[in-house]
């Protein structure tokens, strides 16, 4: 790791005044420090923000608000989330390891960079790091994207993000010029030539908290994840599903979000359309799973992710609907 200065400001405003392209915020550090150790980032200053950020899980009539400094372990163990936002608790519980869950924060989890092995290798000057070509597109890409791979085919590594998206969460973001609320569906955005990152967060901005609206009690949700081993791995593919079946057995609400298959958490709109307003049965679920895979563009090494994500979608929906 290259040398840097360290600041521990007394207030958020002070912290925001320090932040910039060469001064990065440090909270849990589990992604930032690995990027720095790999020499992919070399900030001149780290600004300790963990003590300044909101932390904890609060519930009111409007829904649930989770502070950005809340650890994954706290989210995993929270009884309210387990009961009413099951998929989120499950996602936190299968992310990384107990140690990392004790350290990593919600904010950092949303902002973590991809694990693509070209992106993480300092010898590969890939497109996402400002280069001209994505090395994975023609290279080794078994872990890479099925969807949305225009400039970069890395996949978004977060387990929590698909679950939060499935619950229609929004982030409260603060910069030197004030606060804004950004739905996570807009917050995550495919990287572009001008913005080589997976979010619309601007330099110098911080995520303060994430809120989910409240859902009727009969709403059910599930998070399923497949990995190369049974723990301590990022998703090869994952599915977060939130559904509510109305009084007349019709699917009144559904959100299906895929993880590990696109540079950002990927909402399966097609599958949702197949399901909404219908009565669930095996055939409908099969059709929804097929629709979830529509538009996929498999690469040389990742075609297996198609049957994999269909199986996950099918299983999640079966478990919630049948």
């Amino acid at each position: 790791m290259r040398a840097f200065a360290y600041s521990r400001p007394a207030s958020l405003d002070e912290a925001l005044a320090l932040l910039g392209a060469s001064a990065r915020p440090l909270a849990g550090g589990t992604d930032l420090l690995t990027l720095m150790k790999a020499d992919l980032l070399a900030p001149e200053r780290l600004v300790a923000i963990a003590p300044l950020l909101p932390s904890g899980i609060a519930r009111d009539a409007e829904g649930v608000t989770i502070g950005a400094a809340t650890t994954l372990a706290d989210i995993e163990r929270d009884p309210t989330l387990a009961q009413r936002f099951t998929a989120l608790g499950q996602a936190a519980g299968v992310a990384a390891t107990p140690q990392l869950r004790n350290m990593a924060t919600l904010g950092g989890n949303l902002l973590q960079r991809p694990r693509c092995w070209y992106f993480r290798n300092r010898l590969a000057q890939c497109w996402l790091k400002g280069g001209t070509a994505c090395h994975a597109r023609e290279g080794e890409n078994r872990q890479h994207a099925l969807f949305g791979g225009s400039g970069c085919v890395a996949v978004h590594p977060s387990d929590l993000a698909p679950a939060l998206l499935a619950f229609g969460a929004s982030a409260r973001v603060r910069g030197a010029h004030g606060e804004r609320i950004v739905p996570l569906e807009e917050f995550f955005s495919l990287p572009t030539g001008e913005r080589r990152s997976e979010t619309r967060l601007r330099d110098g901005e911080l995520v303060l908290q994430v809120s989910m609206p409240s859902y009727p009690e009969e709403t059910r949700s599930l998070y399923l994840k497949e990995m190369d081993r049974r723990a301590f791995a990022f998703a090869l593919a994952s599915v977060a599903a939130v559904v509510r079946v109305s009084a007349r057995q019709r699917i009144g609400h559904v959100r299906l979000v895929l993880g590990g298959v696109a540079p950002i958490p990927w909402r399966a709109h097609g599958a949702e359309r197949v399901l909404l307003g219908e009565e669930a049965d095996e055939r409908l679920i099969e059709a929804a799973a097929d629709a979830a895979a529509e538009g996929a563009v498999p690469l040389k090494g990742n075609a297996f992710k198609l049957p994999l994500l269909k199986a996950l979608a099918r299983r999640a929906l079966r478990s919630l609907l049948l």
Binding site: W117, R120, L123, E140, D228, R229, A231, F232
Partner: peptide, 21 residues
């Protein structure tokens, strides 16, 4: 990869068994 770059010279990407396996 084709250029001789080892893509998983780490214990993250080179997957040995864990207690859960």
């Amino acid at each position: 990869d084709a250029c001789g770059l080892v893509l998983n010279a780490s214990l993250e990407e080179y997957k040995v068994q864990t207690a859960a396996d």
